[in-house]
Computed example of a mutant assay.
Amino acid sequence: MPKVLIISDSHGLTDEVQAIKERHADEVDIMIHCGDSELAYDAEPMHGYYKVQGNCDMDNRYPEEVSIDVGNVSIFATHGHLHNVKSTLMPLSYRADELGASIICFGHSHTAAAEKVKDKLFINPGSIRLPRGRDEKTYATLYWEEPSEATIEFYSDQGIIIPDMTVDVDLTAEE
């Protein structure tokens, strides 16, 4: 069962990013940081993450986006500021089409959410520094049984699952 850790908008936090990485290191296949870490690309807490540049990241070594194949799915990760995510998910959807991705991970809005729209799963892990819409500082994991059943779990920055945010989706059905 493939499993992915997704974090975003940590805005300068180092110990927390490191702790989350260490907490889940033995249970995930990949880790994604969706930008605005405000850390150097090669900073120790960022080692092991697929990472992208957010609007607050000044290190130009970060790519604007990454595309990752995990198991039977393709994941597209970006921060979201270049795709107008605070207004619409359409530009993200179009870019995912170009990349052949069915799962899109992004940040920027600091709002934790997971939503299946037609054949795509959009995941924003929220922020472990400055959350919006909820009190909890959040990050997420995604795991799935091939070929179709996926679960997104949101955690507080302390590693506690937030049960009312858990989302189960069928990756093969259009919704």
Results as ranks from 00 to 15, higher is better:
residue 103 I to W: 01
residue 123 I to G: 02
residue 171 L to C: 07
residue 55 N to Y: 07
residue 156 S to G: 10
residue 36 D to S: 07
residue 139 Y to P: 06
residue 130 L to T: 12
residue 92 L to G: 07
residue 144 W to C: 04
residue 89 L to E: 10
residue 20 I to P: 10
residue 53 Q to M: 15
residue 70 V to I: 15
residue 130 L to A: 12
residue 38 E to D: 08
residue 133 G to H: 08
residue 51 K to Y: 07
residue 104 I to P: 08
residue 76 F to A: 02
residue 30 I to K: 03
residue 123 I to K: 00
residue 7 I to G: 03
residue 72 N to G: 14
residue 174 E to F: 06
residue 125 P to K: 06
residue 92 L to T: 10
residue 13 L to C: 10
residue 25 A to Y: 00
residue 16 E to D: 12
residue 37 S to M: 06
residue 171 L to G: 10
residue 98 E to K: 11
residue 92 L to Y: 05
residue 152 I to N: 06
residue 164 D to H: 15
residue 156 S to N: 09
residue 88 T to L: 14
residue 107 G to H: 01
residue 132 R to M: 11
residue 149 E to V: 13
residue 19 A to L: 05
residue 175 E to D: 11
residue 145 E to D: 15
residue 146 E to P: 13
residue 8 S to T: 09
residue 170 D to L: 08
residue 146 E to S: 14
residue 173 A to G: 00
residue 77 A to W: 04
residue 175 E to R: 13
residue 20 I to A: 09
residue 80 G to F: 05
residue 144 W to V: 07
residue 49 Y to G: 01
residue 174 E to V: 08
residue 134 R to I: 14
residue 67 S to T: 15
residue 83 H to V: 01
residue 96 A to P: 11
residue 55 N to D: 14
residue 9 D to N: 11
residue 154 F to K: 04
residue 24 H to F: 12
residue 94 Y to E: 14
residue 69 D to G: 05
residue 172 T to N: 15
residue 119 D to N: 15
residue 135 D to C: 05
residue 23 R to E: 11
residue 143 Y to F: 14
residue 172 T to F: 04
residue 21 K to V: 00
residue 86 K to D: 14
residue 124 N to T: 09
